[in-house]
């Protein structure tokens, strides 16, 4: 028996197959950085720092959204929760020293944790769709933020602000970037490998199957919202660091931008698919676009249009790719 030569189809390595989208996002980030340097030759350490400062709150908002979306839900309270923690921190930290500010930051984190757990509990126990619960809760948290601080104000010690605003390690490595890496590495990395991380992905991809395999679905859902609250609180603290004040409306931008960021970062809104690294790069890309437009001398108002077009194209391409893989 002669076995004829069979054309072996090219199979990309496992790493590329599993993380193709993430690698693509980083390639896109690299390409847009190269493009930026090309159109703006003096792009340097200072610009890198302002890029990181701009991307930090968005990246944290995206992290908060990612956790919930991976578990098969959606959280429309991310922005308002960021605003609540932002104004709370700025109000409490006014005229305080660095040590007190750190203590306040820890308390604010605990509060974010509690707020997230509260959101999650309502989602689970009311049995109302998550999008509706978090939509209603976004009014509530928005009101709470206004109660704490009626108009922009408050403050934070300079040392605390410098946790994000300086570049301690090297002028090219802004603290904001280090902070983001530390947060993701400390909160997400250990979790992802744990049983809870596995359960999170499991309930996101098939809730019934997860339940049948012994996952406590309601508990994991509540924990997902809790973790989202923690990331949102870190995002609020980041807003306090980067702006130096608290503003009750500071979060309004971040709920939906966070959703856009994670989709660009390869997280499926259907749940259970995606990771944390893609959205982080996507936050930098979406922050870089308006900056590039200014360098190009284009009216920054086009920024929103281009961001919108990027999102629309990305979801269309993503949808088409999914369609080719799995003909309906």
């Amino acid at each position: 028996m002669v076995v004829g030569r069979v054309a072996i189809p090219f199979v990309p390595p496992r790493l590329v197959r599993r993380h193709g989208w993430t690698i693509g996002v980083y390639a896109l980030l690299l390409a847009s950085l190269i493009f930026t340097v090309a159109i703006h030759p003096t792009y340097g350490a200072f610009d890198i720092k302002s890029l990181a400062l701009g991307a930090l709150p968005l990246a944290l908002a995206a992290a908060a959204q990612t956790v919930v979306v991976l578990s098969g839900g959606i959280d429309l309270t991310v922005g308002p929760l960021m605003a609540v923690t932002n104004v709370l921190a700025a109000r409490a930290m006014l005229h305080s020293n660095f040590r007190d500010a750190l203590l306040i930051a820890v308390l604010v984190l605990i509060l974010g944790c509690a707020a997230g757990a509260f959101n999650g509990s309502i989602v689970v126990f009311s049995r109302v769709p998550d999008i509706v619960v978090t939509l209603a809760m976004s009014f509530v948290w928005g009101g709470v933020a206004l109660l704490i601080l009626e108009k922009p104000g408050g403050g934070a010690p300079l040392d605390f602000q410098n946790l994000a605003q300086e570049a301690t390690l090297s002028p090219w490595v802004p603290n904001a970037l280090v902070l983001l890496i530390v947060v993701v590495a400390a909160v997400w990395m250990p979790l992802r490998g744990s049983r809870l991380g596995l359960a999170l992905y499991a309930i996101g991809s098939d809730r019934t199957a997860a339940h049948a395999s012994g996952v406590n679905v309601p508990l994991v859902r509540i924990l997902a919202y809790t973790l989202s609250g923690v990331f949102a609180a870190i995002g609020g603290l980041a807003l306090t660091m980067t702006t130096g004040i608290g503003s009750p409306l500071s979060g309004s931008f971040y709920t939906l931008s966070g959703v856009a960021t994670i989709v660009l970062g390869g997280v499926s809104l259907a749940g259970g698919k995606g990771g944390m690294l893609g959205p982080m790069a996507a936050a930098f890309i979406l922050t870089l676009i308006p900056a590039d437009l200014i360098f190009l001398g284009i009216d920054p108002n086009y920024g929103q249009v281009i961001q919108g077009i990027v999102i629309v194209l990305v979801v269309m391409v993503g949808g088409l790719a999914a369609l080719r893989r799995k003909p309906a």
Binding site: I74, L256, V259, A260, V263, L269, A270, D299, N301, Y302, G303, Q304, V305, I306, Q307, G308, I309, V310, I311, V312, V315, M316, G318, G319, L320, A322, L323
Partner: peptide, 23 residues
């Protein structure tokens, strides 16, 4: 046609419309 998620598709278009209107 492109099977995009309604939430994100319409969100993207909302950005396009608002930005376009400002311009």
């Amino acid at each position: 046609v492109f099977q995009a998620q309604p939430l994100i598709m319409t969100l993207g278009m909302a950005l396009v419309v608002t930005g376009g209107l400002t311009v």
